[in-house]
Each structure stands twice: as C-alpha cells, then as structure tokens.
C-alpha cells in the first residue's frame, strides 16, 4: 500500500533531496511512524508532544488534516499527503 507524501524543501535533508516519498499507514500517525523508519528525524519535525506541530500543515487529498481528526485522520492506498510548513511570523 503506497501513499505519496510530498516533502517541503526544508525537510528534504531527511529524504536525500527527494520531493516526494512513498509511505504506508492507515492513518496519519501510522504514516509518520512509517516515514520515520526510512527517514529518521523527520517525525520530530512534524510532531511535538504527541500532536502535529502548530506551524506544520498536512493535507490529505488537498484537505487540511486539522479538519479530519489530525493524527487520527484515515488514509487509504493512493491518497496523496502534502506537508507544508506554515508561512507565518510577526512583530512579536
């Protein structure tokens, strides 16, 4: 079962420069655990204290996982996952 995961520039150090990698899992948590096996260190960039990092956006088939149960969001073969760091900041 393959799920395509699009990797942002900043995290390509974990994927030997690859823009996309394949992973597997029946929900987002399982997928990230699977990615960690092949790309050690990437999990810590996505998850903090057991939840998705506030300034990392993850989409399943173009939908923000925050509206799909976060790490519990279900996945199926052929789904596409996109990871994008938030573009954010501010004066404080």
């Amino acid at each position: 079962m393959a799920i395509e995961v699009r990797i942002p520039t900043i995290l390509r150090t974990y994927t030997d420069g690859a823009k996309a990698v394949d992973g597997s899992g029946d929900n987002l948590q399982a997928l990230i655990d699977d990615l960690e096996g092949n790309h050690p260190g990437i999990k810590d960039r996505l998850i903090e204290s057991g939840d998705l990092r506030r300034f990392v956006n993850v989409y399943i088939n173009d939908e923000d996982v925050r509206f799909m149960g976060g790490l519990e969001a279900e996945l199926a073969d052929g789904d596409q996952v996109v990871v994008l760091p938030a573009v954010a900041g501010g004066a404080r």
């Binding site: 173009d62 996109v82 994008l84 573009v87 501010g90 404080r92």
Partner: peptide, 13 residues
C-alpha cells in the same frame, strides 16, 4: 493582526 501574519492553510496549499 497588527503583530502576526500567517498564510491561510488552504491558500498556502
């Protein structure tokens, strides 16, 4: 906000 910015997540994608 006058002190923070963030691209909307849908717009970002």
């Amino acid at each position: 906000s006058p002190t923070f910015y963030e691209f909307d997540s849908t717009d970002l994608l």
